[in-house]
């Protein structure tokens, strides 16, 4: 597969390490009332869709960027690639 890196352009997927569901960005608040439950869901209840999926890929043999790749798991079509850091900020993980 080819992943179109937002900074470096098309790169072979071999250069990346796959982590999985991008919801791993949404780490729960450790001080929340239901923290234990939230962490349980965060860790163990992830979707594994046959179809479009937002995934975390790490450009280990590259610039060490974590990316959020939107990929169809059936066709392998990749429709969007974002820097995970930007996604994390957009999802409110910044300060």
């Amino acid at each position: 597969m080819i992943i179109d890196h937002p900074l470096l352009g098309p790169r072979d997927a071999q250069e990346f390490v796959y982590l999985g569901d991008a919801t791993l960005i949404d780490r729960p608040d450790w001080q929340a009332e239901n923290a234990a439950e939230a962490f349980h869901d965060y860790l163990y209840l992830r979707d594994n869709p046959a179809g479009e999926h937002r995934e975390l890929w790490y450009h280990e043999q590259g610039d060490r960027s974590w990316l959020v790749v939107t990929r169809n798991t059936l066709t392998h079509e990749i429709t969007s690639v974002e820097l995970a850091r930007d996604v994390a900020r957009a999802r409110g993980r910044g300060r």
């Binding site: 390490v17 995970a84 850091r85 994390a88 900020r89 993980r93």
Partner: peptide, 18 residues
Amino acid sequence: AVLVYRRMEFARQCLWPD
């Protein structure tokens, strides 16, 4: 060594980006 570095980058970029 490699795995820890990878996880630290994950923590830095994805969990605490600021």
